[in-house]
Every structure is written in C-alpha cells, then in structure tokens.
Amino acid sequence: MTTKLVVGLDGHETGERALAYAQNLAGLIGDCEILVAYVIEWSPYSFQTAEENAQRHKRREEEISTAKERIINPAIKKLSDAGVKTQGVVRHGDVATALNDISKENGAQQIVVARSSEGGFTKRIFGSATSNLVMSASVPVTVVA
C-alpha cells in the first residue's frame, strides 16, 4: 500500500525545509506519495463590503491559480524530477483544520509542516497554525525546524 504524506507549504523558506524533509522521508519509505498542500487563510465569518462580495468568486479563482503557479507547481516539479509521486492541493480555510481535513480525506499517514513562520501579536492571541495543528490533528505531525 502506498504511504501518503501531506506537506503543508507556507510560501516561505520554512515550507521548503518541510518539503525537503518529506522528500527525504519518501525516499526512505519507498512506495510513497506526497500531497503538497497550500491553505489560503480564510474565514466564512469575516466581514466584507458588498463590492468585495460581488467579486469574491473571481478573486478566489485568482488566489487559487496564483498559489498553484507560485507555490504548488514548483514543489510538484521538484518532487517529480526527483522521481517522487506527488499531487497538489490548494484550499481556503483555517490552516490547521484544512491540513487535517486533507490528510483525512486522502487517508494520509502523516502531516509534515515547518515551524511556524508567523509571530507577534496574532500568535500570542490565537496561537500559531502549527501548534493548533499539532493539538488537533488526527494523524501524527512532524514539525520541521
């Protein structure tokens, strides 16, 4: 049976480290598929103007295609070049919840993320996406330093 790993990218160098680690792991496992995921932070309970609402669908499509182009596709290319089986996923929502959902939907055995790249005020109030994921995930999580 193919082992599936979900790697959460964040568009930063930290995410690259998580990807490199997962690639290494995949090499050791052998029959392994990597799902590269990027979550666009979004809440259905935020407040928007009427004009933003009218353009939301268009913006969402743009956000997804930008994320694919800049983050997912380069990662997929890198892994495929190295001979690793791979898939890309872009999703809107809360980072921790979405990564956990992706791993459950695909029957992944593990989630690999980098140490949080956010800081300051938001982190103090809401905690980081990484720590939220560690606390709520239903599969083992590896946090790459």
Binding site: I40, W42, P44, Y45, S46, F47, Q48, T49, A50, N53, R56, H57, R60, E63, I64, R91, H92, G93, A98, D101
Partner: peptide
C-alpha cells in the same frame, strides 16, 4: 466545504 473561499451566508448577511 468545496466552496470554502466563496461568499458565505454569514458574510452576505453581515454585509
């Protein structure tokens, strides 16, 4: 859940 990122009922009501 596949519609995440689109305008939600809550957002339309709030607006």
């Amino acid at each position: 859940p596949n519609d995440a990122g689109e305008v939600s009922h809550f957002q339309a009501l709030a607006t």
